[in-house]
Design a protein around this nucleic acid. Structure first.
Length: 894
RNA sequence: GGGCGGAUAGCUCAGUGGGAGAGCACCGGCCUUACAAGCCGGGGGUCACAGGUUCAAAUCCUGUUCCGCCUACCA
């Protein structure tokens, strides 16, 4: 109770729910998420990996955004003008799917509505339910500047997309061509190569005979046997290829075959791509439905016959099979071949089958007219930038993967046959066939003047717009202040699985359009898996819902857990128990704070400044340890070792600050002497304050809440308080060494007590024989702590040779402890333990001696190592002596 | 087929040339007025296997086995 009459209190239990809501709202109201408007400050900027507008926060988002928030909060506290740009992605296919599903419930398709109405409907959906994930990010505590929130389909970004498309077209880097692409028969659109997921599947190899025919078209009786995993595609075969070096077939190259079932005459071509070792060494060529065959066809000028429609059902080119879905067609083809005796055999065969990454339907390679980005001229500078270190990948090991992909990259198919997205700004003139690509919508053909122009129906791949994200969100193509101030961004934090989808493409576009890399660092974090290391998925039922666990354990606990497990280059195996464990840490922080604040019990308390000369041993020690902690945490955060930062703080706060310092400080904090009390409380408060600030980026809520209970706060919010800086003047190695003596003495006594089953409450006496300079003084001065923490009534000293008989003995470096306890001591047991300890030391001694006897070791090892080894030998000898002495004492008793 | 990573305590992992570590779990003892979501103590590991380099290897090199993931046009 303070004299001013103000109650000083802090609730007994930490109730995270209301606290989290309160502080997030206050931070936002105070505008703390916006960059400080001070041109002299260094800047730190990031763009969020925009979640899908259809998205719901999953554990991967939670990890990704927690790490970003840790970094941006750290930098903000450290004096940077920080900007974290948030936003969402229009997610073309995914969003369209969502709305189409809604329509399906009304028994409607998007075609019933028509393009314009459908898009209106998507916008309506977006307004109503889109961006739910934004609220969830706020819940997670993300300190994004929401006033700058962007959406890939908003006006500014659409303008950027259009500008980029037109420029690339003008530069000849965008072209339109008939090409074989991955087609999703369910989404009815082309997919980029990387949007296809390959999965090993159990399939078959069908061996089919293709009869050879003469010039006049009549069978010669000879045939070539081909092996295929997709017999139905034979309807579109336009050749059979063999390796020209293959003696079995070389005489047939240039000859004709009669394609079974279809009765088309096709040539045999020689192509080195064919592997004579595989199958029969003869490959059927279906240029319209196989990437490889498409290439062969180009080399040999073969015709391409498309046999599937957009649903992957056989079209009219498939003759009597027309209308059959591809797998039905397969059955029909196989059974017809069998009936005609052309099916030689069927073998089981494992192979990779491509699936649509959005809907998991097996994709169909299909020849069609699409838009492409010519990628090589863009990829090369993007590779160069990383090679030269202008952008650094963290962990570095990703470089090789990046290089591999950037080197072997194929042109990027950017057109999608869906409606939701950026419609390609190209018009076709119906009169003269001119292709018009312009920044402003044209009303007539610039070539022939005709007004009969129609716009391209396709939209752009969503990744096309997200590739521009680092500069489009800052206002490009306008030359905005934000762009000048915050581009290039400092760091991109994202999951490694979109290194190619997104990161690589941002690199390309950033360099091409800004002339500068989009980020200095790219930190790629791991995937969150379940505790067995399996990928989390709804179908497996092993998902951890971040919203649910935030509700249950508090946001801080979830954030701390994610940070503590975010070791570089390793997957995160997460389970609920771990989160529960770290909730205990949050509680520990709360209670340690309570202890200090309850002892202060005065809102007007004015702490004294911390000067080492005024402090006692544990105080100098904890301050020194704090300095080491600050150093470790800062360097960990600077190098993206989030786990090291989290674990270091955990260890320091719990095991050094709470377990040792606060326990030692208790009597001082409650002392009658005002000076002593004030000093102890000031130091405790000083360390607590520093810990709160150090911890704030990881666990912003509980730290902010406690911060507001502190009696003296230099800043109104922990969130904008200065991040602690190390002060070398406060590092005190002498104090650290002295504390080691004290803690090992206390530990030794506690050990004896536990081993001998002495009740924790019972007071005992100890005798100490110090045998190193200064140890006696340290122990005398620290007697109060030994009494308190080891429950000792009297600490006495004994001279050498006056060892008490029948005492439990602890041999430490620097001293021996004796706990006189005649009745309780089990001599046999003690001797056994001594024997075990002795043989351990003998082994160590042996090893060290052997090393020192080795000429090579003495001459080749560095001097420090040799000296250290000598020291060790001395220590071991001393210990042995003590043990032997003690053995004699015990035996004398027995 | 190619690439990358991993194998250290029951579990999850740190340690990357000089005396095997942490957290959790486990066992034993404690309601010591901040915290039983706690305190104190304890047991527990041929550092996957085989070679090599070195005065010295969990750590560097080579190979082997197993486990992940990525990638690829063997139809």
């Amino acid at each position: 109770m303070s004299s001013t009459g103000k109650e000083y209190s802090i609730p007994k239990a930490y109730d995270f729910g209301p606290v989290e809501q309160k502080w997030y709202r206050r931070w936002e109201e105070e505008g703390l998420f916006r960059p400080v408007d001070d041109p002299n400050r260094p800047t730190f900027s990031m763009v969020i990996p925009p979640p899908n507008v259809t998205g719901v926060l999953h554990i991967g988002h939670a990890l990704n955004n927690t790490l970003q928030d840790i970094l941006v909060r750290y930098k903000r506290m450290d004096g940077y003008a920080t900007l974290w740009v948030p936003g969402t992605d229009h997610a073309g296919i995914a969003t369209q799917n969502v709305v189409e599903r809604q329509l399906a419930q009304e028994k409607l398709s998007r075609y019933d509505l028509g393009r314009e109405k459908f898009i209106e409907r998507v916008w309506e959906w977006k307004k109503k339910s889109g961006g739910r994930i934004i609220e969830q990010l706020k819940r997670l505590g993300c300190s994004c500047d929401w006033s700058r929130e962007r959406f890939t389909m908003d006006e500014g970004l659409s303008k950027a997309v259009r500008e980029v498309f037109v420029r690339l077209y003008e530069e000849g880097l965008i072209y339109r061509a008939d090409y074989i692409i991955n087609w999703c028969p369910r989404c009815h659109t082309a997919l980029a190569d990387i949007e296809v997921e390959h999965e090993e599947t159990e399939g078959n190899l069908w061996y089919i005979k293709y009869p050879v025919v003469g010039e006049d078209g009549t069978p010669t009786g000879d045939y070539i046997m081909v092996a295929t995993t997709r017999p139905e595609t034979m309807l579109g075969d336009t050749a059979v290829a063999v390796n020209p070096e293959d003696g079995r077939y070389s005489h047939l190259v240039g000859k004709k075959l009669l394609l079974p079932l279809v009765n088309r005459v096709i040539p045999v071509v020689g192509d080195d791509h064919v592997d004579p070792e595989f199958g029969t060494g003869a490959v059927k060529v279906t240029p319209a439905h196989d990437f490889n065959d498409f290439e062969i066809a180009k080399r040999h000028g073969l015709e391409s016959i498309n046999i599937f429609d957009e649903n992957a059902s056989v079209n009219k080119n498939g003759g009597k099979y027309a209308g059959l879905e591809r797998y039905e067609a397969r059955k029909a083809v196989v059974s017809d071949l069998e009936r005609e005796g052309l099916l030689e055999r069927v073998e089981g065969h494992r192979h990779a089958v491509g699936h649509c990454y959005r809907c998991k339907t097996v994709v169909e390679p299909r020849l069609s007219k699409q838009w492409f980005v010519k990628i090589k001229p863009l990829a090369e500078p993007a590779l160069e930038a990383v090679r030269e270190g202008r952008t650094k990948l963290v962990p570095e090991s990703w470089y090789r993967t990046y290089e591999e992909w950037m080197t072997n990259i194929r042109d990027w198919c950017i057109s999608r046959q869906i409606w939701w997205g950026h419609q390609i700004p190209a018009w076709h003139c119906e009169e003269c066939g001119e292709l018009i690509v312009e920044r402003q919508d044209p009303s007539s053909c610039p070539k022939c003047g005709s007004q009969k122009i129609t716009r391209e129906q396709d939209v752009l791949d969503t990744w096309f717009s997200s590739a521009l994200w680092p500069f489009s969100t800052l206002g490009w193509p306008e030359e905005t202040d934000d762009l000048k101030r915050f581009y290039p961004t400092s760091v991109l934090i994202t999951s490694f699985d979109i290194l190619f989808f997104w990161v690589a493409r941002m690199m390309m576009m950033g360099i091409h359009f800004m002339g500068e890399v989009p980020f200095r660092f790219v930190y790629l974090h791991a995937l969150v898996r379940d505790k067995e290391g399996k990928k989390m998925s709804k179908s497996k039922g092993n998902v951890i819902d971040p919203l649910e666990i935030m509700e249950k354990y508090g946001t801080d606990a979830v954030r701390f857990t994610l940070a503590a497990f975010a070791a570089q280059g390793r997957d995160i195996k997460l389970s609920e128990e771990r989160i529960e464990g770290y909730k205990h840490f949050i509680n520990k922080i709360w209670n340690a704070s309570r202890l200090i604040l309850l002892n202060i019990n005065d809102p007007d308390f004015e702490p004294m400044e911390v000067h080492p000369r005024d402090l006692n041993l544990p105080e100098r020690w904890i301050v020194s340890r704090l300095m080491h902690t600050i150093q470790t945490v800062r360097s960990a955060l600077d190098s993206f070792d989030f786990d090291v930062a989290a674990r270091t703080l955990y260890g320091f706060f719990w095991h050094e600050f709470c377990d040792w310092f606060l326990e030692m400080a208790k009597p001082h904090m409650a002392a009658e002497d005002e000076g002593e009390r004030k000093r102890a409380l000031s130091v405790a408060l000083y360390v607590l304050d520093n810990c709160l600030r150090l911890l704030h980026p990881i666990i912003p809520f509980v730290t902010e809440e406690i911060w507001h209970h502190l009696p003296a706060r230099p800043q109104p919010y922990c969130m904008v308080a200065e991040y602690p800086k190390e002060d070398n003047a406060l590092i005190d190695s002498d104090a650290e060494r002295a504390m080691d003596v004290l803690t090992s003495v206390i530990g030794g006594i506690r050990n004896v007590r536990a081993e001998l089953g002495i009740h924790p409450g019972a007071r005992i006496d100890v005798l100490i024989h110090p045998n190193e300079d200064g140890v006696k003084e340290v122990i005398s001065k620290g007697e109060i702590y030994i009494r308190q923490l080891a429950r000792v009534s009297n600490v006495g000293f004994v001279a050498d040779g006056k060892r008490p008989k029948g005492a439990a003995t602890v041999i430490l470096n620097g001293c021996e402890l004796f706990v006189p306890l005649k009745g309780l001591l089990d001599v046999e047991e003690e001797l056994k333990k001594l024997h075990k300890k002795k043989s351990g030391i003998l082994k160590d001694l042996e090893r060290s001696k052997k090393k020192l006897a080795n000429e090579n070791f003495l001459s080749k090892a560095p001097k420090e190592v040799v000296d250290k080894e000598r020291e060790k030998v001395e220590q071991f000898m001393e210990l042995l002596q003590k043990i032997e002495h003690h053995q004699k004492t015990l035996q004398g008793l027995g």
